[in-house]
Nucleic acid binder design. Structure first.
Lengths: 242, 242
DNA sequence: ATAATCCTATTGTCCGACAATAGCAATATG
DNA sequence: CATATTGCTATTGTCGGACAATAGGATTAT
């Protein structure tokens, strides 16, 4: 007797539409920036109705593979690190991730990131970082909004400087998750800004000297400070973020 | 004159449906495991037609917030670390991430993960790891499939043992991305398995002694070996994965 | 008691229609 | 002639209804 049959491929048509287009994107048939045919055109090509095509498009839309251009037209977009980070941090939040888990990941990743940064950051990037730092020094002490923005921007610049999209996405997703809570902390821990400024200064120095150990050391202190900030602000670390 | 009007909120109805349900999930109104009302029910509640509701459901579906239960009914599901990892690694692949970037992230994250594991892994978890290791020792030398599975499983167990869903998701997404390429490497680098086994042995020893430095050291060697494997297998590290 | 069959609720797909909108062409106005 | 306005057209967003496919549960037959 010949071999048993494979279970045959049964997926809803809208799913097949999704996968077909996704496939075309990944194999380069639909290049980045190209625009998708109109819905009517897709109907005739796939031989299904608009409702079905549209359901498939919604899947693509949520995956982030197509974005609206002018005239509501969709065009193809390959996911950027920032998209992945945004999606991941949103999912984490919905999954009930705690401050503790985020902080733990920060404490693990960022000192290493600082090590890499010390080795890889170009002189221009370090100068850029320094500019962010001086900007932070200039903002009013009670402007918590701007303070947080600068503090997060400093992290962002380091992440971007690593020249690695995987790490960028991971670090950015952490940045997004701490951003909100940081606002909370800074509003309640008045001395936080000075400590942040000091850590940033030492970090920039370490980057200038390309001293990986020093960079890691100060980054660790910086992250530890954040935890202390949470404690001062009486944030329950086992509470879910957002 | 009174202040200018805000641009009014104009989003397609299907998007509003999506956001409304998403909101209900995140604020706990729809609990994990609860089942979504039928499409017809949602139609009456939102006051839109089924087509519109269904487009919204497709968005939820792709976000991973609802999954099909028996009878095709949708059930609410909060995203798990593994879902986030799967989505992220797929996006990375579509974004054209290179082997080099993945390896770079591996080399940065896993030694630190090993450090944490040395401190946190329970005795049972270490025993579990040891079991994976002995399983790998027993598989035939030419069974590349099983070899890869065991090698990846070893990483998975470490990731799970950290007891941190953020790190778990990040490490898992890396695991998914190397999985495929590892198959390629092991088929071409015959001695790879022995080196993997040795590294795993040393790692387990380090975990048993809770020696973080030793664990990090051997994990670094382990990851470096992987890179050497790529070179032996003549994989172009600047090529996109998958 | 178990297996086969029917029933029903729900999803998947189709069709056709029309309103809303954005971009473009044609026109009016100075 | 240049600019502003208007109308045209292609496309998307939404609607309503229809029916086939399917999964689970109820019912019947053996």
């Amino acid at each position: 007797m010949t071999k048993a049959f494979q279970p045959l491929e049964r997926a809803p048509a809208y799913m097949k539409v999704f996968r077909a287009i996704e496939q075309r994107i990944s194999d380069g048939g639909l290049k980045d920036g190209a625009h998708l045919p109109t819905e009517a055109e897709l109907c005739t090509q796939f031989g299904v109705t608009r409702s079905t095509v549209r359901e498939g498009l919604r899947l693509l839309e949520q995956t982030g593979l197509i974005v609206r251009g002018p005239a509501k037209k969709f065009f193809i977009k390959r996911p950027l690190a920032s998209d992945i980070a945004a999606a991941a941090s949103k999912s984490f939040a919905l999954g009930g991730i705690t401050f503790h888990e985020v902080w733990d990941a920060l404490a693990t990743l960022y000192p290493q990131a600082a090590r890499l940064a010390a080795k890889r950051l170009s002189a221009e990037k370090v100068a850029e970082l320094n500019k962010v730092r001086t900007t932070l020094a200039l903002v009013a002490n009670d402007d918590h909004e701007a303070t947080v923005d600068c503090a997060v921007e400093f992290f962002q610049q380091i992440a971007k400087g690593l020249d690695n999209r995987v790490m960028l996405a991971m670090l950015q997703s952490l940045n997004l998750m701490i951003g909100e809570s940081l606002r909370h902390v800074i509003a309640r821990a008045p001395k936080a800004k000075d400590r942040i400024l000091n850590a940033q200064k030492k970090l920039v120095e370490a980057f200038e000297r390309q001293d990986a150990d020093l960079a890691a050391e100060w980054m660790t202190k910086h992250i530890d400070d954040l935890k202390r900030g949470y404690q001062v602000a009486k944030v329950d670390m086992d509470e879910a973020i957002l």
